[in-house]
Amino acid sequence: MSAVDNPRAPYVRQKTTRSNYELYGWVFMRASGAVLLVLIFGHLFINLMTGEGVHSIDFAFVAGKWATPFWKVWDLLMLWLAMIHGTNGLRTIINDYASKDRTRLVLKGLLYLAFTVVVVLGTLVIFTFDPCPAGAAADLLPSFCPAP
């Protein structure tokens, strides 16, 4: 091969993209964003605008919400969609501004580690939550817990 490509060589189409990964990411940001608008506005309204707002939030308040599958599904869906939406957003920002391969690798490694830890922890908390833990002070528990 010479240093310069043969100018008479016929055009060969290069298959540069291996998958539609970025297309699906773009679609996901829009679809999840629309769902998250409803989920997060609802979450903020119930937790900050009803009763005494942030002063109403304590163990019994959350236990009362998670007594119904409705709020468990709501919070689980919110956790997963928000974490994937946010992680994909940060991935895009890292790709845009971190030009060194190594920096990009490290930052995205940390990002995916944080994603995994937070999603696994949050999911476990929702599924293993006990609204009436044994030995807890009764006045901190929701009213439906049996008297000790």
Partner: peptide, 14 residues
């Protein structure tokens, strides 16, 4: 998510 996870430690801690 981390502060909410404390809810599984104890009602007092949360």
């Amino acid at each position: 998510v981390l502060d909410t996870a404390v809810i599984n430690v104890s009602p007092e801690a949360y």
